[in-house]
Nucleic acid binder design. Structure first.
Length: 485
DNA sequence: ATGTAC
């Protein structure tokens, strides 16, 4: 007979739920959610995953989950966990298959009134022509030599710049400046390199997208001003990651770390949590390869930015200066990083895993670009294609409680399979068009799987992190036209 | 997320 662990849950306050340490757990679990959201979360497998992560060696602070939590490989998506450098581990399952999946937001000098309804369709179609999308998509015009690909893996968005794609101002507005310095392309397998070679500059599939939208409401005028946001402004979101290359890196290291888990005598409640000590040879190799895959993703978003700009310029017949498509910021959603945090009164160097979670550093920190340092790091939270998205800002609350982390999106409520079923006999594209949103997907199935009702309402998710003080609302954006991979 | 299992 299979028996599930009974998790002892305590409501801390309106937005926090503690999973009390028991059994093999080395620390508590902490879930950020409203009472309404927690009703469904408490029945999910993902809650057990929060408890499982708490069993890993060297965990510092609680095993955390953001309100967009849902089931993932080993670690929950929406999970945040920090580990001690000496006693702790690094785990590919704590990062996810799409290494440095992330989003970038561009702002423009265009206002909504300059973009008629009919033109949005044509604009999305133009983007579709210029940016390859879908599973296995590739760019015939950008097949890199093995040596050039290694430069991409070493320099990230910096490589894209060296090739004429973008400006120095872009780099400044990317997490880590668009280049993970500890990346080592030599730790990436031949198979991963081969998969990535023709995929740079492609969108991919699933929840990846390019979205033309507008700023609908400003909540914080001072921060919005620093971020360059104004009501009615046309914006562009780019959501993509490291494609087949990152997927292969994850696959390779799960295979390897399954062995090192045994080698280092680590006991796991779930094999999918396979890991290695942070400072072991295997752990270091994974971190170096993950960094290389992250750089591929940074370069990918930078190239797509370039083609978005080109598409806008040709479509509107306006100059780059007039369009003013500038990068507001670019965040990682799936990463593990070595960071120094103040914890229980002392500075500690930690390996912070964010899987479907966003770094949300507060004002004053050196990692926040100088242009934003007085207010804090921009936090970009895309919602589903039918509702809205948010720009938030990092807070001291996040530094104190979540190792400078917050949510990353809406979070699924329906599995892909369930969504396909729910979409039967309907046209998701037509339903969205009746709400004034033009969507075009690589396949019909993509739109069905990504239907708005497959996701939680991102406004509910954002409200939780705002009220809990681990980031603060700056603006809400509304989608106008979406290109789905 | 993903040459959606080699």
């Amino acid at each position: 007979m299979e028996r599930k662990n009974v998790i002892d849950i305590e409501r801390v306050d309106a937005y926090r739920w503690r999973l009390k340490r028991h059994g093999a757990m080395r620390t508590d679990g902490l879930v950020f959610a409203s009472a309404g959201m927690f009703e469904s979360i408490r029945k999910e497998e993902s809650l057990q995953q929060v408890a499982n992560v708490a069993c890993l060696p060297g965990i510092v602070g609680p095993s955390m989950a953001m309100p967009d939590i849902h089931w993932g490989y080993g670690f929950p998506i929406g999970g945040v966990a920090a580990f001690d450098m000496d006693e702790g581990i690094v785990s590919p399952g704590g990062v996810g298959y799409d290494i440095n999946c992330g989003v970038r937001l561009m702002t423009s000098r265009l206002s909504r009134s300059e973009l008629g309804d009919e033109r949005i369709k044509d604009l999305v179609n133009t983007l579709f022509q210029n940016i390859p999308s879908g599973v296995g998509s590739s760019r015939k015009d950008l097949k890199l030599s093995p040596a050039e690909l290694k430069k991409v893996l070493r320099d990230g968005a910096g490589w894209a710049l060296s090739q004429g794609f973008g400006t120095p101002a872009d780099l400044e507005r990317i997490e880590e400046g668009g280049t993970i310095p500890w990346a080592d392309p030599e730790k990436v397998s031949e198979k991963a390199l081969e998969r990535g070679r023709s995929q740079l500059g492609t969108l991919g599939s699933g929840n990846h997208f390019v979205e033309v939208g507008m700023v609908e409401e400003i909540f914080d005028t001072e921060v919005a001003r620093v971020f360059g946001l104004f009501e009615g402004q046309v914006t562009v979101f780019v959501h993509t990651g490291s494609r087949g290359l990152g997927h292969q890196v994850c696959d390779d290291f799960i295979r390897l770390l399954l062995k090192s888990t045994k080698k280092y005598g680590i006991e796991l409640p779930d094999k999918q949590l396979c890991c290695a000590p942070v400072e072991s040879a295997e752990g270091r190799d994974y971190i170096a390869a993950m960094g290389a895959a992250a750089n591929f993703a940074f370069a990918n978003r930078q190239l797509i930015t370039h083609w978005v700009r080109e598409s806008f310029e040709s479509f509107f017949g306006l100059s780059a200066e007039r369009l003013g498509l500038s990068v507001l910021y670019d965040v990682c959603h799936n990463m593990a990083k070595i960071e120094t945090h103040r914890f229980e009164g002392r500075e500690r160097k930690l390996c912070v895993h964010r899987k479907g979670a966003t770094r949300a550093f507060a004002a004053g920190l050196p990692q926040v670009p100088e242009i934003y340092r007085q207010v804090g790091q921009p936090v970009l939270i895309p919602g589903d294609m039918g509702r809205c998205s948010y720009v938030l800002v990092g807070t001291p609350g996040a530094m104190e409680e979540t190792f400078g982390s917050t949510c990353h999106g809406a979070g699924r409520v329906l599995s892909r399979h369930q969504a396909l079923k729910a979409a039967q006999g309907r046209s998701i594209a037509r339903e969205l068009e009746s709400h004034g949103i033009y969507v075009r997907g690589a396949t019909r199935a993509t739109l069905d799987e990504e239907m708005p009702e497959a996701y939680k309402d991102v406004s509910d998710v954002v409200e939780v992190v705002h009220q809990a003080g681990i980031s603060r609302k700056v603006a809400r954006l509304k989608p106008l036209g979406v290109m789905k991979g």
